[in-house]
Design a binder for these strands. Structure first.
Lengths: 204, 204
DNA sequence: TAAATTATTTACCGATTGGTATAAATAATT
DNA sequence: AATTATTTATACCAATCGGTAAATAATTTA
């Protein structure tokens, strides 16, 4: 009955690492998008034949879901960490700065997997796009609550509309991906962040 | 030698209207994106067989270019009109409000053809994406010049960084397409515009 | 060593992609 | 009426798409 000790698996061992494969697939999906990343793209860059890929991950959508999980729990884990910031201003600043870091983590900048995938038709048909949008909206709700708290704490003026302000922030956040794709330099985007912070409603 | 009077064309007349076809193609490209709009999509909704389509427009890329021209000279002609506005604040307000109108002109909102097409891989390979990005950057340059003028006129504070501020505006502008695709309502987006205007640097 | 289990390789599948050859249909011109 | 020019419809093309059947290779267990 004991299954605690992870005994060696029964059959032939797979000769590729699942986590590394997920990282490479993440790069592909980010650079080319889900729809335009073909199975041939995946098999050649991962150096894994199609049947092996399907045995390990299921199909293309399920592979994407695993990639997505690796992405949200890895590169964009800061999504949750920002709420530890003391002020809304530093929170927004950290959110945007960390985003820029993620977008430029490799030599060739790529958009955010979550944001850009919301425009995928294949993911929409598969019902995955809806999940992505729901996750983004949940994040937006957390921002609203945080801004409300800041109002109660006297950090933000009572005249601030938390919903509007949160919409403003998530909109800017999503836009960073487009800017990266459109060729903005990292320096430009860091300046953009500073511009946003400079315009942030005064703490009164 | 006279070719002034447009005599009736020689052969069999085509039984579809090019301009109407372009409008329907525009709808398709906006809703599905260039890559995911197939020739079958086009031929069925335009009710035109493939050889006729190719005789009239060339190929898919050239069709897109004609659609793009119809789009820039039609729905988004406001892109140039905004520079007639008296203040930078009203200019930005008009830019964003007109954008929202375009995104919601039909029942189902769609992204901006230009903005979303900058993420297309097929258009990138065809060298068209670069043209789109160049056009957007040209628009950004005009904004920078306008903000500089506003500083000279004393409308904007001398401390304003025109480049940064223009980058901020175009980023917000592009983000509207993403918000529309992500399901934001028109009311939400109009409120977003007001939030941006509220944060606009004071005229001093 | 034999059996059982899992992964790999090779080769293939039907469907869809963008694009086209060919011939019939429709018009103006001679 | 015959010729010429243009568009139409039918049928097809090679290439690529996501996905899989079948046989072989590698490993643990008995």
């Amino acid at each position: 009955m004991r299954k605690l000790s992870p005994q060696k698996p029964r059959g032939r061992p797979r000769n590729f690492n699942k986590d590394e494969a997920l990282k490479m697939a993440l790069d592909l999906f980010r650079r080319k998008g889900f729809d335009n990343t073909s199975l041939d793209d995946l098999t050649t860059t991962l150096n894994v034949k199609k049947p092996s890929l399907y045995a390990a991950f299921g199909n293309k959508e399920q592979l994407f879901l695993e990639v997505l999980h690796a992405y949200t729990s890895g590169p964009i884990a800061y999504f949750h960490a920002i709420f530890e910031e003391p002020t809304t201003k530093s929170l927004v600043r950290m959110l945007l700065l960390k985003s820029v870091e993620v977008l430029f983590y490799s030599e060739s900048p790529a958009g955010c997997l979550v944001v850009m995938s919301t425009a995928s038709e294949a993911l929409q048909k598969a019902g995955i796009q809806q999940k992505l949008v729901a996750g983004l909206q949940q994040h937006q709700q957390k921002l609203i609550a945080r801004f409300e708290q800041a109002k109660a704490d006297g950090e933000l003026k009572p005249t601030v509309d938390s919903q509007r302000l949160a919409l403003y922030v998530v909109t800017l956040h999503k836009a960073l991906s487009l800017q990266a794709i459109n060729g903005s330099s990292k320096q430009d985007m860091l300046q953009l962040v500073e511009q946003v912070i400079e315009l942030w409603p005064s703490t009164l």
